[in-house]
Amino acid sequence: MQRAIELFWERFTGYSGEVILCVSLREAMQRTVALTRKIGTDTVGLSRHVPVPEALSNAGLHVMHEPPTQVDDVPVVGITAPWGLVAETGSLVIHDHDPGERLWSLVCDVHIAILDHPRIFNDLDELFTEDSAHLSTGLCLISGPSRTADIEKKLVLGMHGPRRVIALIVGVD
């Protein structure tokens, strides 16, 4: 497992994603609050899959649960709880059929992903031979911030999706 996490770390950060290992869920939530404040906002979009959501509201953050329907309603930070990661490609595995998981990982400038004891797949073959409900309802692999190189191959982060993706991983030490 150690090797898989190291590989995930190397590849996810190689694509400009950020990784923070946390010893407990409590630490992950504290760090989420601190990151949100540092970004300069107190409103977050929150997927219903994120554990202990009250940790955020208790810390004084304004929490939106319903995904936005208007462009002006999009907060700067969206928080999701991916259920797995793939070491080979440095990818978060999102439960894409859930509107909260999908939209909060997509429409905000910053996507914070809280992975509490995630399923760890060494490679894509392991993932796609998995007999899981997630495979039958849909998934999305996210490997860092959205990007484009359509103008003379110059890389620009944050094309249509988040400019920053921060993965807080609990329970993999």
């Binding site: 039958s136 309802t137 849909g138």
Partner: peptide
């Protein structure tokens, strides 16, 4: 690129 940034497997119509 090692992987395309978003690889979505759309398995059912969304709500």
């Amino acid at each position: 690129q090692r992987i395309t940034n978003y690889c979505t497997v759309l398995s059912a119509p969304r709500q």
